[in-house]
Design a protein around this nucleic acid. Structure first.
Length: 278
DNA sequence: CCTGAAACCTGTCTGC
DNA sequence: TGCAGACAGGTTTCAG
């Protein structure tokens, strides 16, 4: 379940607790089990399992779609959920999820499980967080990113805007759902060439990106299929997964096309493809 | 630089 | 019921 709002929701839960569960921050790791070795990107699975026991979880944060956990004596545990990952706190005595790829046992009896049916997720244990997230573009919600900066960054690319927005070195955190929603909100066709967007359109697009992310965050992200954390954003989709249904703005049927190999949903009337000479 | 295809994986749903 | 095919919130690598 992994775009920025979903990852942030998980980080928030580990940090602060919720739904009757206490925070995980403050707990001490007792043991580690690696159930699918290829999920550990660095160090070796054995090194990963050996370094954590005895360490106390101090902080949990997010950068782009990466979730990180800082430990008092073991550095940073960094997780990328990819398509189907989730981090689950299992109460004492309960069984971890069926598709758990690693488990961290805590000395209070709880277990942190990395649930990941499609094995795409990756985990790192590193001394410096930047070793994993250093290549990422700016955080979309960081006010240091101004509309003028955003426009200047768009000007550097001739690509279709949708795949560009999903490129994590360009902007960190957007995925297929929030990109489609933001483009609709901004009235921008997903295949518009990035450098063709005017300063006004760029500002409107940045504003739309922030609005959909904030809306997702306020609803604890989106819950689809087998992944459920109580998120509600799936009930607020305006275009995603709504092919054939009327646009909530103008009533025109939403279309579904493939852009950059990803399923793409848009309103052909609200998001017409404008001419661009340059 | 840009695009598309393929690979990495398992599960669910649809249609015959 | 069985089975094939499409599809899924992501990223990387490679060919053209």
């Amino acid at each position: 379940m992994p775009e920025l709002p979903e990852v942030e929701t998980i980080a928030r839960f580990l940090r602060e607790g919720g739904r009757g569960q206490p925070p995980l921050v403050g707990a001490r790791a007792a043991g580690v089990e690696v159930l699918w070795e290829r999920t550990i990107a660095a160090p070796s699975p054995a090194g990963f399992a050996a370094r954590l026991p005895g360490a106390v979880l101090e902080t949990v944060g997010r950068r782009g779609k990466f979730l990180w956990m800082a430990w008092d004596a073991a550095g940073f545990l960094v997780v990328h959920l990819r398509m189907s990952g989730d981090l689950v706190v299992v109460p004492p005595g309960e069984a971890p999820p069926k598709h758990s790829r690693w488990l961290i046992r805590f000395d209070d009896g709880r277990t942190l499980a990395f649930d990941n049916p499609r094995k795409f997720g990756r985990t790192w244990l590193v001394p410096d967080l930047q070793m994993v997230v250093g290549h990422l573009g700016p955080e979309p919600l960081d006010s240091a990113l101004t509309p003028a900066d955003f426009h200047a960054r768009l000007q550097r690319h001739r690509r279709q805007v949708k795949p560009l927005l999903m490129t994590q070195t360009f902007l960190a955190g957007l995925g297929n759902i929030y990109t489609d929603e933001a483009l609709h909100r901004a009235g921008v066709h997903p295949q518009t060439r990035a450098h063709c967007l005017s300063p006004v359109q760029a500002a409107r697009l940045l504003e739309a990106i922030r609005a959909v992310l904030q809306e997702g965050l306020a609803m604890n992200g989106a819950s689809i299929d087998w992944m459920y954390r109580g998120g509600g954003f799936q009930n607020a989709f305006r275009v995603y997964h709504r092919a054939g249904e009327p646009c909530l703005t103008c009533g025109t049927p939403i279309e579904r096309i493939i852009v950059g190999q990803r399923s793409t949903h848009f309103c052909p009337r609200c998001q017409s493809l404008m001419k661009c000479e340059v």
